[in-house]
């Protein structure tokens, strides 16, 4: 039996998405749409600035919606390995882990599309009321500045993988110890900010700091992916009397 079968991974992905949505995709779509509307309405109701500032805040809030699927599906995958408690789905760990990323990417893409459509329409309606003379041009949410979006995607991915690890680590806090987890989080953050701290201290230049930060972020992303796999293995194999 192959360690990785694309067909089995796709079957597991379908199962995972259904399970994570409580077997009701329309209901889940409704919840996502409601969250998107909330993220759009909140700055409209609270911000004093113009439409551009409101869109900035909305985009920041909606980015959370894009990173949530990964830790959420990761937690669901561990449970979804069992269609009813006690039964294990015949799929390998690698297939399950890859399907978590595939489903998270699909969920994030759907959320992004829905955010763009709902956000752009909402802000366009608002613009008509605020600037009826049409002085300001129509702006598409998340695509006002393509360069910024492209920079944000790797950072969002890193954050999502870090949240996945954090969720898994918190589940094992009794065994690992809260102090160890807190120390690991501090070390993690220190690693990210070391290049910036070195630059502030005048030890390295701005370009070197920028490159070092990029390298650190790349390494941390790879580390998160690997650590996520090991933690999933731990949840699958080392729990429930197998410690």
């Amino acid at each position: 039996m192959k360690n990785f079968s694309f067909k089995r991974m796709m079957m597991f992905s379908r199962l995972l998405l259904n399970n994570a949505c409580g077997y009701s995709i329309p209901k889940a779509a409704g919840v996502i749409a409601a969250v998107i509307l909330f993220c759009i309405l909140l700055p409209v109701l609270t911000e004093d600035g113009g439409i551009r500032e409101m869109m900035d805040t909305s985009e920041n809030l909606l980015q959370v919606l894009l990173i949530i699927p990964l830790p959420w599906l990761f937690s669901a995958a561990i449970g979804t390995a069992r269609p009813v408690p006690g039964i294990m789905i015949p799929a390998t760990l690698t297939e399950k882990y890859v399907s978590v990323f595939l489903c998270a990417a699909a969920a994030a893409a759907v959320s992004l599309c829905a955010s763009v459509i709902i956000g752009t329409v909402s802000f366009e309606i608002l613009r008509h009321f605020t600037y009826p003379d049409g002085v300001q041009k129509m702006q598409i949410l998340f695509f006002r500045d393509t360069e910024s979006l492209l920079t944000d995607i790797p950072l969002l991915f890193l954050t999502a993988t870090a949240l996945q690890i954090l969720w898994a680590a918190l589940q094992t806090r009794r065994k690992t110890g809260k102090a160890v987890i807190a120390a690991a989080v501090c070390g993690y953050l220190l690693l990210i900010f070391t290049p910036a701290l070195l630059m502030t201290a005048g030890i390295i230049g701005q370009d070197a700091a920028r490159i070092s930060t990029a390298v650190v972020l790349c390494l941390l992303t790879v580390l998160n992916i690997r650590l996520g796999y090991l933690l999933m293995k731990h949840f699958e194999f080392d729990m429930g009397g197998n410690e």
């Binding site: 039996m1 399970n19 077997y23 009701s24 009813v84 408690p85 015949p90």
Partner: peptide
């Protein structure tokens, strides 16, 4: 080892279980 081949050959019906709403 819980490989997919072995799990596919077995079916365990637990004493207590629940289905999802499906």
């Amino acid at each position: 080892g819980r490989d997919a081949g072995t799990l596919g050959k077995m079916f365990f019906m637990p004493a207590e279980f629940g289905f999802g709403h499906l």
